[in-house]
Every structure is written in structure tokens, then in C-alpha cells.
Design a protein around this nucleic acid. Structure first.
Lengths: 349, 349
DNA sequence: GTACCCTGAGCAATCGATTTCGGACAGCGC
DNA sequence: GCGCTGTCCGAAATCGATTGCTCAGGGTAC
């Protein structure tokens, strides 16, 4: 019967309890009386309302509340590729933190297509999400500038912009890349290559610049052909880039890949052509995605605290939304070079 | 100035165009006039409204619309673990299909915790998502029965219930498991073990039963100790289960793992103890997650069309929501045994 | 020339919850 | 007994869009 057509509303509860809807709202939200500073409700009324709500199985409508309060307790999250384990982990971290603070996440997979990103941005704003978590590395800077100008709350994950007022959670890509090169140099490598990430991403650029700084700092061979730019942060792009590098005159004894997926693509390609890692070529990745240690050989890589980045990003955004003080606008998470089996001293020929 | 405090509403547009809000609504939704069956609007009015909307940068409020229409164009998606690449792929497929049809997805990671599942279920219904995509294999059957009784639309992904009226997208786990055992039998194995998935999941049960059916069908050794139940569909659980199996008297020459993560955990463990795959032990997984072919050795496994399952699930649910005819209540997707390097004939000792 | 029809568009109710304002009534002091 | 303070709760506006009903006016048919 009550399972009829329409949901049970606050008015139904009010009728059932014999009070006014506004009273129900106040009781359920544990509000003080309007006039009193902090007067509790008449216990008897309170009980009646609670009992009625319970009896009717009342569930408030988040939509109606959102309309009235002009906030949805929803965050939009833009990622380039949910299948990349790196982003899966960030999402999980963000989702955990959001749930804990009462927010939900609408997931948006942009596939790095600007068109699709634009669509999502429009949809998310029509839905009035309270804020945005942006892990999409390719998103144009002026799109972000647009958000900033409108004062639409957002946090950047694993990327940053020139603007130092933007909230962001990042790692020091430059320093980590230098450290990678230092490790390879210490092993005795002098010809260290780099499969760079797309140079329209900040991570791609920062890591390449870090690589270059390392090469100069350690006095390694510094030749343009030692750097190849991959089309994407993916296995296929890694395979393809390595193919190009090996076809050229570079002849590196070690290669620093801009991320783990690129490194995995390289491993794959090297296996195909019968080359041995690290014997013929040492390989270093970036991110330390969950399976990096399970590969053969286990991948030496830079560990990025993925879950923690997601958690920190969500908290940062929600702090902003709720007007809490924000200690640091740009959070830099620590990285750590994880030495595994894909790097070794170069063979002396 | 118009960037003021409140968003621009349909009333603003109406004022700007010198018409009534209802007219704006009708024009923007391309509605026919109320009385006419299909009369177009006065072109001039139409233009005025469109121009005004454009000039003001009007964006409709999805919330207000949802409240009025009692539909949110939002789907809730429950997955046990977004970091499992299997689910990442399903999510991506679902998300793609949903976007295409105008829906968004609220992602919910249950971690297989019933508590958390319950919380999500409550929140999602308060938010009045139009329907649910449930890929959470552990969700209790009576929770699902509850949804069914309330006629809350949902689709099960990669699991099913006894009820044949529930919408579901599945694979034939039983048949695939038989095929796996057949493959191993054909290679000459007679002692084939099984690391079963949790037996409170339908996939775990179906695969175990299929394994048993295969063992009987091919006349292989049929001993209880050849089957160990893993605590979860995870690497850790796989490691742990294998440890138990190897400590016992089972001595299999091949093991069928209930999914790829379990198989990966086994590979990891075997590497630790210096055993060779497939020389010492052949291993077969299930799902064919993206990295399965990149492991060393590349994993023989059952390919489940993950993206396609997500896509099909979303379409099925939306068809239901929009009242379209549904051809098959339970969609069974095809599987394929992918032979790679982790299986070979047993060594003759 | 009148009655009727049809088209284009306004009016107002509605979706469900929140919140400001203010009213009713009880208790207390003088 | 009157007025004052204070407690508890009701009335009504509001958030923004949709839609059934209604109405005005022009055209048409007889």
C-alpha cells in the first residue's frame, strides 16, 4: 500500500506524527529551534517524529535537499584512463576519502579526448557537482584557467599548472628523474636513453627535464637521439617508441621510461626480439603500479604513493569546499626509487 | 555582474527574451505546444529564446530537472575492487556506454565489506539513481532480493542469482572451467589442482563445480586435497592458498586458479621458492586481465570479454529504465581459452 | 456575419526539503 | 491580573525546471 507510486516524503512523516513538515525537518537534522540559541526539542515531539519516520521507512531525497541547499555532496573525477592501474589506485584513494566525508564521486573517463573532456565538464557542471578532481594530464591549461576564473573548486592530481594558487597534489618529477639517472650512472651506464611521455603533459615534460638535468649532472652522454617521445603513456606507445629508438643510432645501455606502462611495452618488445633485461638493456619505470614487482624481470621504478595522492586530493578539495583552512596549496608527495631486477651494470663488450 | 551570486535560471532567460519561463522550457526541450500534436514554435519566438539563452550562457540545472522528472540520469555502480584490472575494464565499458546514452555513473568501491555495501546502497537510493550496476560478487542474495521486491532496477555483472527474472550479464563459468581441465588433460596432466575462489560467490562456486565436472569427465585424479579455497580473489590469497596446497600431500602437476590475480600470486610464490612454470607446475588463470599476457611466463587463461560485459550491462540496464523491449534477461558472453606459456605437458619423473 | 477551430503562449501547480519569520501559549514576576 | 520572556512549532517562501490547463486572437467555414 505505502509501496504505492510515490516515495514517502517529509510531509507523510509529518502527517503520521501529527506535526508540521518543518518540524520533521528540524528534528531529523537535529536543529535547534529557530528562536532558541540551543534549545533541544520537546523530547516527546522528537520521539513522535523519529518513530513516525522509522515506521514509514522514510528516506530523505538527496535531490530535493541539493536543490534547496545548492550543494550536492558530489565530486566529479576526471581521469584519462581508468584501466591504467596508476589511476585505479588514485581513484580508490579518492573514493575512500570522499565516502568518509560524506561525498560521492562521479567517475569520468576522458580517454584523453578533449572532446570528451569538454562534454564531461559541461555535464558535471549541469549536475552541480561541488568540486572537481582532475587527474587528466592532457587537459588544456586554458580549460583549467576557465574553471579558476569562475572560482569553480577543483584540485589537480599528479599534474600542476603555472598558477600557484591552484590546489594540486603532485610529486617532484624532476628530482625523481634526476635520482633515476643517478642510479643508472652509479651502475656504470654512460649512454642512458629516455622514452619521454607526451610533451603536452606536465609529467612528461618534468620527467624529461629531470632526465636531462641528471645526464648533465652526472656527465653522461648527452645526445638528442637518446630521447624519444612516446605518443601516450601506454604499452603500445612504449613498444613503438622503443622500436624507433633501437632502429636509430642511439645504442643506449639503459633506458628511463616516463612511466611503468611504457616500460612494460618496452619489456614486451625486447622479449619479442630476444633481448635480455637487464643484461642487454637496463630499464627503469615510473609510478610503481601494483604489478610492477611481479613482472619478469621485476621493474625498477619510482614509487609514487598513489592511494595517498587520491586521499590527499579528496581531502584537499573537501577542505576547500567546506571552507577549512588549507595549509599547503600544493602538496608534494614523497617518491622513492625502488630497486628491483630490471637494472644492472652495463655489460662490458 | 551576471557572474553574481546565483546561477542564471530559466527565469532569467525568460525575462531576457521577454517570454514566460514555460515557453523557454518548451523551446529548449524542443517540445511541441501543449495543445498541438506537433506544431513547431513560432520561429521568431524560438529564435529570441535561443539567442537569450546563448547570450546569458544558460545551463539548465540537472538537479531541478531531476526533482521534477523523478529521474536523475545517473547509475550507481558497485564493484568490489576497482584496482582489480578486471573490474577496471568492466567499469570503463559501462561508463562508455552510459555516457553515450546520456547517463553518468557514481562509482562505489565496496572492498567486499558488507557494511560498506549497505551504506552505499542507502546513499545511492537517497540520491535516487535510476538504476544499479552490481558487480559485487559477495553481495548477499537477500540484499538483492530486497531490491527485486521493491522493483528497483538493477543489472548483475559477472554474477547471477537463482532468480531467472534478474537481469544479468555473465559468462558460462562452468563450461569454461571444464574446458580448462580438458586442456590440461590433453597435455597429459592427471593430477590437476584447483585454487577455488571464495565459495560465497557464484563465480567461485561455478568454477569449482566446472573443475570437478571436468576432472570426472576426463577421468583425472579426484581428491579433496587437490582443491583449496582462497580467501579472496587476490594475489595475497593466491600465494597463501598455494602455500597450503604445497604443504599438503596433493602434489598436482597443474593448477587451475579461480582467477588471474590468484594465478599471479601463485606465480609469485613459485618464483620465491625457485619452482619453474610450467616445468614444475602448469598454471591456468581466469579473466585474461590486461597484463596476463605480459607476465613471465605469459599466463594461459580464460578470456572474459570485460569491456563488452560492461557495455552490455549498461545497455541492458538503460533499456530497462527506458522501457525498451529486452530480448534476453540473462546475457551470456562468450569466453575463450587463451593458450600461452604457463601450461605445458607435465615432466615425466 | 457569426460560430467554431486552431495555434501560440501564459498561469500556476508540482517535485521534496530547508529556513526565516512569527504566532501561540506557558510560566513567572510584580 | 497584567505583561514579559522564552519555548516550541506552524506558515509560507524558496531552490529551478516541467507541464496540464487555459485563454487570446486570427483564420475559416457555412
Amino acid at each position: 500500500m505505502r509501496t504505492a507510486k510515490t516515495r514517502t516524503t517529509i510531509t507523510d512523516v509529518a502527517t503520521e506524527a501529527g506535526v508540521h513538515p518543518s518540524t520533521v525537518s528540524r528534528v531529523l537534522n537535529d536543529h535547534a529551534t529557530a528562536s532558541a540559541k540551543w534549545g533541544a526539542f520537546a523530547p516527546e515531539t522528537r520521539q513522535r517524529v523519529l518513530a513516525a519516520a522509522d515506521r514509514l521507512g522514510y528516506r530523505p531525497s538527496a535531490i530535493a535537499r541539493s536543490l534547496r541547499l545548492q550543494r550536492t555532496l558530489t565530486l566529479g573525477m576526471l581521469v584519462p584512463d581508468i584501466r591504467n592501474p596508476f589511476f585505479s589506485s588514485i581513484i580508490k584513494g579518492a573514493e575512500d576519502a570522499a565516502l568518509e566525508r560524506g561525498y560521492n564521486i562521479i567517475l569520468c573517463n576522458s580517454n584523453d579526448e578533449p572532446q570528451r573532456e569538454a562534454t564531461y565538464l559541461r555535464v558535471l557542471r549541469e549536475r552541480q557537482v561541488d568540486g572537481l578532481l582532475i587527474a587528466s594530464s592532457q587537459m588544456a591549461d586554458d580549460t583549467i584557467a576557465g574553471l579558476r576564473e569562475e572560482a569553480f573548486p577543483f584540485v589537480l592530481l599528479n599534474r600542476a599548472t603555472r598558477s600557484t594558487e591552484d590546489l594540486a597534489v603532485v610529486v617532484d618529477n624532476h628530482a625523481a628523474a634526476v635520482e633515476v639517472v643517478g642510479h643508472l650512472a652509479a651502475l656504470g651506464h654512460r649512454r642512458v636513453g629516455h622514452i619521454a611521455g607526451p610533451q603536452n603533459t606536465t609529467t612528461g615534460v618534468d620527467r624529461r627535464e629531470g632526465y636531462r638535468a641528471g645526464v648533465l649532472a652526472y656527465g653522461l652522454d648527452d645526445e638528442p637521439q637518446l630521447v624519444i617521445e612516446a605518443d601516450a603513456f601506454s604499452e603500445e606507445a612504449g613498444q613503438q617508441a622503443l622500436r624507433i629508438m633501437l632502429a636509430g643510432p642511439a645504442r643506449p645501455t639503459a633506458v628511463f621510461a616516463a612511466n611503468d606502462l611504457i616500460a612494460i611495452g618496452m619489456l614486451q618488445r625486447l622479449r619479442e626480439i630476444g633481448a635480455h633485461v637487464p643484461g642487454d638493456l637496463s630499464i627503469v619505470g615510473f609510478n610503481d603500479i601494483p604489478l610492477a614487482g611481479l613482472l619478469e624481470p621485476a621493474l625498477t621504478t619510482v614509487r609514487v604513493p598513489q592511494l595517498a595522492m587520491g586521499v590527499a586530493g579528496a581531502h584537499l578539495l573537501i577542505d576547500r569546499l567546506e571552507g577549512r583552512p588549507i595549509a599547503e596549496v600544493r602538496l608534494t608527495m614523497p617518491t622513492e626509487l625502488v630497486l628491483r631486477a630490471s637494472t644492472a651494470a652495463p655489460m662490458t663488450d
